[in-house]
Amino acid sequence: MIIRRILILIPQLIIISILVFILGAMMPGDALSGMIDPGVSAEVRELQREKLGLNDPLAVRYVRWIGGIVRGDFGESFIHRRPVLEVIGERMANTFFLSLAILVLTYTIAIPLGVLSGRYSGTVVDKAILFYVFVSLAMPTMVLGILMILFFSFYLGWFPSSGSVDAIVLAKGSAGEILANRLHHMVLPAATGALVGMVGVVFMLRANIIDRAFSDYVTLARSKGVPEGAVFRRHILRNSLIPVAAGFGFAISGLLTGQLFIERIFQYPGMGHLFFSSVKAQDFAVVNAIILIFSALTALGMLISDILLSITDPRIRPQ
């Protein structure tokens, strides 16, 4: 089943790569823009284009492009004048650590809140949590980010508003100081990401718990005389956590895209930030590569989710 699922993934990724390639072909400029100075005559430029194969049919160019990517060659960024993979690689670690921080924070906030509000649904606790979640839900990521910067960075002055590490610390500080400085920079973006990301988890968990509480097997357990605490722990909670566990796979890759906005607003030098500045600079080799990488990551996340679901929920495991 898992093998079959992976096999389906291959044509899907090929289709996506074609779409991304077409997107790239629609973008203005090509590998030569910015490389040749305006003084060069049109004929010379045309000769260069011919030599680089830029005048070949779309299909030929696609095969060459995808062939390069399979070998790890994403082309060259004409802003940075370096291979795309190198430029992205530098940012990847930053994005990864921020993702990790957001992921951990999201679940440590969301699971207790979801469990509390599901278990005590209708009570004051539940209403307070729901209200908080609703306010969170009504804040677009960017808006929350702006308010966080305004309050915690400008007003209180507790955390830096942008960047991932101070240049002076990076140059002179010890390893410990650099780490502390990095974490200090990460607090605001990570908190923003977690506050936005937890909404879905809390809602899902709460709805699941309430739904389960009315199911026949729970009624049966209660009528057998199983103590309420055990009913909740063993019968309701365990089943309610299944979809949450499955969502984890999605969360891993989904957070990368959500960070797009967070990295931008906090000027955090990760892939999302690189994406925006590349769009602005029309550096489309980089833009294309990032979109392709994100698609592949999403596909991977979906795969992980499916696998997790089949592990945690024996009912959907095929015989």
Partner: peptide, 19 residues
């Protein structure tokens, strides 16, 4: 729909709007 939803749509929309 599976394939379509793998595309990071916000990024693609940003690029398309730019073009």
């Amino acid at each position: 729909t599976d394939t379509w939803s793998m595309i990071p749509f916000l990024m693609v929309v940003i690029v398309l709007l730019n073009i």
